[in-house]
Amino acid sequence: MTDYESDPPPFDLNEVLELWADLVADDADPSSFPEPVYTLQERAALLDVHQAWLQFCEATPTFITDDLAARALPEWGVLLACTRTARATLESRGRLPED
């Protein structure tokens, strides 16, 4: 979601929002991203993404029919900024071992 080469992006915005909803409860709190799985910085970044996601969802209809209009909202810009920060934070650690 942080970067895409085409406009419109090659995904359905509703599907992206639903994917996050499948992974993170609406009432997410720090315990949703526990240590040692996540560092304090990663937890904070993911909680920022979640808050921005909630605000974006609040600003859009339940089912988005106009992705372009939804992506023009200021809440979308905030969500993108938060996802970029979270991505950079998570990438700084690198991949976790598969064991």
Score class of each variant (00 low, 15 high):
Met1Phe: 12
Met1Trp: 09
Tyr4Gly: 14
Glu5Asn: 12
Ser6Glu: 12
Asp7Glu: 15
Asp7Gly: 11
Pro8Arg: 00
Pro8Leu: 08
Pro9Ala: 14
Pro10Glu: 12
Phe11Val: 12
Phe11Trp: 08
Leu13Asn: 02
Leu13Asp: 03
Glu15His: 00
Val16Trp: 07
Glu18Ala: 15
Leu19Arg: 11
Leu19Tyr: 02
Leu19Ile: 11
Leu23Asp: 11
Val24Gln: 05
Ala25His: 04
Ala28Trp: 04
Asp29Gly: 15
Pro30Tyr: 03
Pro30Asp: 09
Ser31Tyr: 02
Ser32Glu: 10
Ser32Trp: 02
Ser32Ala: 15
Ser32Cys: 13
Phe33Gln: 07
Pro36Cys: 12
Pro36His: 00
Tyr38Thr: 07
Gln41Ile: 06
Arg43Thr: 10
Ala44Asp: 11
Ala44Asn: 04
Ala45Phe: 06
Leu47Trp: 00
Asp48Tyr: 02
Asp48Lys: 09
Val49Cys: 15
Val49Arg: 06
Val49Trp: 02
His50Met: 04
His50Gly: 11
His50Glu: 01
Gln51Gly: 14
Gln55Thr: 08
Phe56Pro: 02
Glu58Trp: 05
Ala59Gly: 07
Ala59Leu: 04
Thr60Lys: 06
Pro61Met: 04
Phe63Pro: 02
Ile64Glu: 02
Ile64Cys: 04
Ile64Phe: 05
Thr65Met: 10
Asp66Ala: 10
Ala69Pro: 06
Ala69Thr: 09
Ala70Val: 01
Arg71Tyr: 05
Leu73Asn: 03
Leu73Phe: 03
Glu75Asn: 06
Trp76Thr: 06
Trp76Lys: 02
Gly77His: 00
Gly77Leu: 07
Val78Phe: 06
Leu79Trp: 00
Leu80Met: 12
Thr83Arg: 10
Thr83Gln: 11
Thr85Val: 13
Ala86Asp: 04
Arg87Ser: 15
Arg87Tyr: 07
Thr89His: 09
Arg93Asp: 12
Gly94Ser: 13
Leu96Thr: 11
Leu96Met: 13
Pro97Leu: 13
